[in-house]
Every structure is written in C-alpha cells, then in structure tokens.
C-alpha cells in the first residue's frame, strides 16, 4: 500500500503540474505581449558593436547576467578542485593505451581546436560564441586526458587557479574601467565596444574550457589524502 502511494502521489503531482502548465501556456499563447523586446533590440543593434543579436544581448545589453554566470562557473570550478586530491590526477588506472584512440586523437584534436576557433570567431555574426568554443576546447582536453596525456597544468596549483579566474578577471576589469571613466558599470566606452567584446570572448573561451576540464579531472576520487572528519 505504502509503495503504491509513494508512486501515485508524485505521479498525480507531476500530472497536475503538466496540466496547469499546459493551461497557462495556452492562455498566454492567446494574447499578444504588451512589450515588444525584439523590436527594441533591433533598434539598438547598431550600437551594440556586434552583428548577431544573441551575442549582443549576452555581452552588451545583459552583460551583467553573463558576468554573474561566469562567476557561477568559477564557483563550481573552485568547489570542484577543493574536493580533488593531487594524486588522483596521476592515477594510472585512468590512462588508456588504446592505439585506436591515439590514432583518432592525432586527427581529432587539431580539427577540434580549429572548430573551437571558428565558433569563437563566428559568434560575431552567426550562432557561436565563447561558451560553445570553450565547451569544444574542454572536450579536446578531455580526449587528451583520456588518451593518457598528463596535462600538468591541471594539477591544483597556481597555474590552474590563474586559468580559472583569468576570463572572469578580464571581464570584471573591463566592467570597472568603464565605470572609472565615468560611465555606468559594464558600459563599454564608445568606439571600443567591438575590440573589448572580442577580447572578453577570447579569454572567456579559455577560462570556460579550464573550468569544465578542471571539473572533469576532479570528479574521480581515490584514497590518497582523503580529508579527515574534522569538526568545528
């Protein structure tokens, strides 16, 4: 009886959620939005410094969101490496010596690096951008790591921490420098918009890849130096 109840109740709750959501979606779809944001956006596109509206929203109109989003990524990275123990990075069990993987790597890694670069460059006027490029770059790192290339910079040390924070730090510096120049926080000085956005995107790509890779590397755990049960 209890088992049945334990399945039925969540089932009923989720079905109610879907029905209510569906009803409200139907109701919303019947009306026009009173504010037309796409039109406003199209009117301001020439001031944004880039040609693709999504990139313009991400790195200019709502850049504060993006700044905080990168902060969230850095937090995840920090917590990840705070859990990691150095030895696990060198765990021989994690290395494969598969000749097929080696052969594939030789082909894939240059291609993936190229793709990451393309995605970054494409962000200005078509779908693409820092996060996509960073994700591909991180994928590249994951492949290399699985293939047994040690990637020494991923050891929890100064280099890793600089890499984690670099993109965020550059973004933040740009934000505050414009505030010092008398504009609002995060406002780009006129004429500098495009180069600044490109700089930010490039360092962000690098840092995003670092964070994702660091999280991948710190997930496996082993017995070496497990933290003790210390209490406050």
């Amino acid at each position: 009886m209890k088992r049945i109840l334990a399945v039925t109740l969540p089932l009923l709750a989720s079905m109610a959620l879907v029905l209510l959501l569906g009803a409200s979606l139907w109701s919303i779809a019947g009306s026009q939005t009173p504010v037309n944001l796409p039109e406003l956006l199209a009117g301001k596109m020439n001031e944004s410094g880039v040609n693709h509206p999504v990139t313009a929203v991400l790195l200019n109109f709502r850049s504060y969101d993006t700044l905080l989003e990168i902060a969230v990524l850095v937090i995840a990275g920090i917590t990840g490496i705070s859990m990691a123990r150095t030895a696990s990075l060198e765990d021989p069990e994690l290395r494969t010596s598969d000749s097929l993987l080696y052969a594939l790597q030789r082909w894939f890694i240059p291609l993936m690096l190229l793709l990451a670069g393309y995605l970054l460059w494409a962000g200005a006027d078509r779908p693409g951008g820092a996060f996509q490029a960073g994700a591909v770059l991180a994928g590249c790192g994951v492949l290399m790591r699985l293939g047994g290339i040690p990637l020494g910079f991923l050891r929890p040390g100064l280099l890793l921490r600089v890499g984690l924070g670099l993109g965020f730090a550059v973004f933040l510096l740009v934000a505050v420098l414009s505030a010092m120049a008398g504009e609002a926080f995060l406002a780009y000085p006129p004429g500098m918009t495009k180069p600044l956005i490109i700089t930010i995107e490039t360092v962000l790509t690098f840092s995003i890849a670092m964070v994702l890779l660091a999280l991948f590397v710190s997930a496996p755990v082993n017995d070496a130096g497990a933290p003790g049960e210390d209490d406050s």
Binding site: L67, A71, V74, I78, A179, M180, F185
Partner: peptide
C-alpha cells in the same frame, strides 16, 4: 559607490583565489 559595491566582492574573490 555603485561601481565599488559591485566590483569589490567579485574582484576580491578572484584575488583570494590566487
């Protein structure tokens, strides 16, 4: 003041990371 308020915690976070 606003710029300082928004900037300080984030900047110190990066600084302390190092």
């Amino acid at each position: 003041l606003m710029a300082g308020l928004l900037f300080t915690p984030l900047a110190w976070a990066v600084l302390c990371l190092l």
